[in-house]
Design a protein around this nucleic acid. Sequence first.
DNA 1: ATCTGTGAACTCGTTCACAGCT
DNA 2: AGCTGTGAACGAGTTCACAGAT
Lengths: 212, 212
Amino acid sequence: MTKISVNTVERLILYRKILKSLISEGITNIYSHRLAHLAENSPAQVRRDLMVVGYIGSPAHGYNTKVLEDSISGFLDVQDGQRVAIIGLGKLGRAVQDYCKQRNSRINIIASFDVDPQKVNRMINGCFCYNISELDKIVSELKIEVAIMTVPVVEEAQIIAEKLVANGVKALLNYTPAQLKLNPNIYIENRDMMMALEKAAFFAKNFNVKNL
Amino acid sequence: MTKISVNTVERLILYRKILKSLISEGITNIYSHRLAHLAENSPAQVRRDLMVVGYIGSPAHGYNTKVLEDSISGFLDVQDGQRVAIIGLGKLGRAVQDYCKQRNSRINIIASFDVDPQKVNRMINGCFCYNISELDKIVSELKIEVAIMTVPVVEEAQIIAEKLVANGVKALLNYTPAQLKLNPNIYIENRDMMMALEKAAFFAKNFNVKNL
DNA sequence: ATCTGTGAACTCGTTCACAGCT
DNA sequence: AGCTGTGAACGAGTTCACAGAT
């Protein structure tokens, strides 16, 4: 079949977010023009991206927002849901929990891990916190597929990541500065915050600068 | 001059992070082979990227790690430093502060803002927290160029972002789910955590899948 | 012999432009 | 008239492959 780029996936996720907000405003139809404007790209780009989800818009009314959202979700989501764990319940871990709550019903954060005796074996933010020593056992028992790494100690990140993968995790969302080395069929999304800041800082000076 | 892509900038930031860690291990020289391996890309890619920083490696010894780090920094950083503010000192804001501390001396988080009377007008995490009502005044007085948005209320994000830009901010690192609309010469780096998780979740299922 | 720097080739993602539909 | 879907053209970004350096 036709190959789908990472960029297209990212944009579909964005379109869905925009559509949800339009739906909550009571907007029922949208043209590629307007969706492109909201997503800050071109109408042709939007239409090209939407080819992969298999919902045909109408020239008369564009796309129905609800149907389009469902079509994108049908493409992006796993029918019976995906199980996620957070590793490390410091400030960042708990912040991620808060941000991810109640926004996508098919992606469920069902476990968290920490070393702190104050946190372990309690419900925290609506999700049970296990002792990290139980990681192997719990990850495989709960069939965790995605892990969010928010541990503060970089040295431990690699070891934990290897354990996660050994117990069935297929994708990592890595907020750690560690440059993880894993089997190449494991997907890693790196979100080093300092690197993000450095990038923003660079473009604060060099955005829209044409010469070098 | 030759145009530099966003991807190249991202990779240079990564190379620099890797080089810092190599230097701290006492490694003084590196070939494009090895740097490519550590950054998980190709030697040709590394050499192509390094063309923009203007440091010529030697066929005999490759690149000197320290000189290369300095060359990359010379390209990426602003000589006299950049001033950054964090807007919103919730869990996420304080986590970002922690992660960004002491890693790049040219990028300084010199102010933070919040509404909580418990936080306002105190030093928090080594950085003064102002009342958000003083945003316009302080941002322009301190010549803030980059802002990190970690406010919890999405509706306020747009208004705050406009104020920041009106007072001289040139780039935003946006951890808010808000899809900000600003003057197109302002650089926005979006880091919606739910979108990141959705992306990781998608590739947990579809990474390395060749057909559709 | 083995590296780097880089023009040229190639690949992949984006945009154009138009047929088809309403 | 004005939209969508898509083959074809285009262009940006990556890789190849080799000259030049040590």
